[in-house]
Design a protein around this nucleic acid. Sequence first.
DNA 1: GATACTAAACTGACTGGTCAGTCTAAAAAC
DNA 2: GTTTTTAGACTGACCAGTCAGTTTAGTATC
Lengths: 209, 209
Amino acid sequence: MPRDASKTKNRILDAAQTEILGKGFAQTSVDDIQQAAEISRGTFFYHFPTKDDLARALIERYAEADHALVEGFRERAERLATDPLQQALIFVALHEDLLEDVSPEEAGCLFASFSYEAGVLDPETEALIVGSIDHWRRVLGGKLAEAMERHPPVVPDADPHLLADMAYGILQGAFILRRSLDDPRLMARHIREFRRYLELLFGVVEATP
Amino acid sequence: MPRDASKTKNRILDAAQTEILGKGFAQTSVDDIQQAAEISRGTFFYHFPTKDDLARALIERYAEADHALVEGFRERAERLATDPLQQALIFVALHEDLLEDVSPEEAGCLFASFSYEAGVLDPETEALIVGSIDHWRRVLGGKLAEAMERHPPVVPDADPHLLADMAYGILQGAFILRRSLDDPRLMARHIREFRRYLELLFGVVEATP
DNA sequence: GATACTAAACTGACTGGTCAGTCTAAAAAC
DNA sequence: GTTTTTAGACTGACCAGTCAGTTTAGTATC
């Protein structure tokens, strides 16, 4: 009996996401989203009782996709190598591949966008973001911790989880830089540079002084 | 009541900055700012014809302060050491000191905040942000380039400007993480980790495999 | 007498949100 | 196999509130 509701709902979410990544949540009106999604104003509120509900749905979808992506990367890394250090390096390299050639519009993390607009989200959704970021950090941090057990780093007191945080930061910074800089490849190179650090830290590349 | 206009103007700017860093520009109303600054509505518009003018003034002030800070750090680094590598390391370490014990409210960069709210600023102000970010990158990148001439890095094709970008990212990422994480010292440790990378890259610390 | 401010009322555009009603497609009744 | 029913999907005009910005009339300070 019904028309395909989920299709429309996803169109709304898609439109909202690009709009919000560009302008921020508060500055994106329901009208903006409605026009971008090419649906009527009423349809928007049919699917999302309030604008805040949209925000929550967006974050939930984003968090799910993020989780799937990270787990996918982890699995691929574990399939491609048995050594945890190699797995960590592959995990990072997969991010590199993903971020080759990102347009300025695509460049951006919904989590970061909302983190600069505090107070919009209810505590549970806020917690979802924190959990999602944490998941990423734990996966990479965990692999690095395993790696350190087998391959002692060339400096004594290296902290695997601090390294993961650093990588997270490089990712976020790259998003911001991508918006003002022209080079579409820069993001991947930033991550590449981090990978090089790991290689150096674990003595994968020979130091040639 | 008082006659000192610049004092009031600065109070408005101060209030606006903390408010905007917390909630974002669009979500911060003139009333919010006016109440936080404890001035009347009329006074706000006496000093800033439009809300956008406030945004511009804020960015200009922030960019100036940023410039002064970076140049100050550069000068101190150049005073404390003659070797460009040591200067670069000190330059980074000074950031570390600055970011010891940052509260979640303070954690944030106005440039990043506005970068996720595109369309608010006029092109000139936008350019000011880009220029400001670029200045930071050029100072660190330049020092690292000098350093590489004197001290060849242990890996062959290290790019000093890419390294500076990475550092910028770590800084930005640390701001975002600081908002959801409890540890006030984390930011400094993130930067410290980057410094360690530089030391490793330039062979300042001995690799002990 | 000019500058710096206050207090409050006001305007108009725009915002999130509502609602009475229309459309669509499939199931039920004949 | 045509007609009727039904319920979810969708529409767009409309409402009430909020926002940036204006105006006005007045006070305090130098």
